[in-house]
Design a protein around this nucleic acid. Structure first.
Lengths: 207, 207
DNA sequence: TATATCATGTAATCGGTTACATGATTAA
DNA sequence: TTAATCATGTAACCGATTACATGATATA
């Protein structure tokens, strides 16, 4: 009879840990910095609007996972610089013990190809060509990024206790290389498929 | 001074055209049928909860893109069977002329690997192994699906006018094969990366 | 006996996006 | 002169998810 109600609100999501991880790795950062890092470093697996990042930072502050320090500036809004706390570091470590959520791919181009029988060959070809251009640019971007791996700034150590799992700086950066390789392999695979599909569609249009 | 307001609400989204395409291809279907088709056919590029599909169907009805027919059943809720209209078919064709939205990948496992330096080797290894199992299953599923391509039911022809772009049945199914191949290539690439990454992490843990 | 499936929906909420807002500096 | 960038946020909305709800039949 009774209705279950008010399931406790979850306090953190992948995007939260994205911010947390960036703060742990690159030390104190502003929302603006984080947005740029998100676009560059997390691009292969998660995206976020800047408004969402500012939101998360506020939420994380109330959770006690970060602290904020206001840096005054002339002729520009103050920089609010956020810094990981001990509790934040612990949350990050605890998250790593949990099984990850399922992968999600959302791709309207694939949807259009799937229902390609309802498109004019012209439209399909145009969309496939645009896709090729876009993914070529992505591939280039990721290749350049792998060669110029972002150098680690001062790492924040809230308690003076070092990250217990990290042995060397080079080892930590290796995870970024692994992700970079994933992104490159993904784009290569996607491009190959796009080119084969385009060839098929063009052949089909000519007949 | 004036504030722009009330930007006209968009009437359709990728998921809308997913439903539309399935209806165009497999003829009259219920929300339940559509959910199952979504999970099987659209799995590689879009996912949807059943509640969302029921919602879309209602919306599409008010747009005049589908019509609903109630099929009574004993001891079970009535089947509401939806059918594409002429306007719906036109909307599907018009959509194909528009450039697609950008691809989005959301993958918490990749995020955990990226910040692997804050994880115990044990946790990372466990998550990677679970990922391998999951993607192996997906690969198997897609491979089986490619061999048993879903047979097309009666196609709905609202105006008696056939799809102007379709030449043969086999040609239309070819697009499904193309998507199937994409899904397989994606899973193969992902698995290869997962195995290499696991090897690296294990090697790193032993030292 | 208990769970899963068939089959359909509603209600509430939430994660994420878009639009609004400001204002200086720098590049085309 | 126009647009882009730096830098920060708020407000509104919306697409999507989760939970609630029902009830028969089939399977373990």
């Amino acid at each position: 009879m009774e209705r279950k109600v008010a399931t406790e609100r979850q306090e953190a999501f992948p995007i939260t840990y994205g911010v947390l991880g960036l703060l742990a790795f690159w030390g104190p950062l502003s929302g603006y910095d984080l947005k740029r890092l998100f676009d560059h470093v997390l691009a292969p697996m998660w995206s976020a609007a800047h408004s969402q990042i500012y939101n998360e930072l506020r939420r994380m502050q109330t959770l006690g996972w970060v602290t904020m320090e206001r840096h005054e500036q002339e002729s520009r809004p103050d920089r609010k610089v956020y810094q990981l706390t001990q509790a934040g570091q612990e949350a990050l470590a605890a998250w790593q013990e949990q099984p990850p959520g399922v992968l999600q791919l959302r791709d309207e181009l694939l949807l259009k190809v799937l229902f390609g029988s309802f498109a004019s060959p012209d439209a399909l070809v145009k969309n496939l060509q645009a896709g090729i251009t876009e993914h070529e640019e992505r591939l280039l971007h990721y290749r350049q990024q792998l060669q110029h791996l972002p150098v680690r700034g001062m790492q924040h150590q809230p308690s003076g206790r070092p990250n217990p799992y990290a042995t060397e700086d080079t080892e930590e950066d290796a995870y970024f290389s692994l992700i970079g390789r994933f992104a490159i392999e993904f784009e290569r695979m996607y491009l190959k498929w796009l080119r084969e599909t385009l060839e098929y569609v063009e052949q089909n249009a000519r007949s």
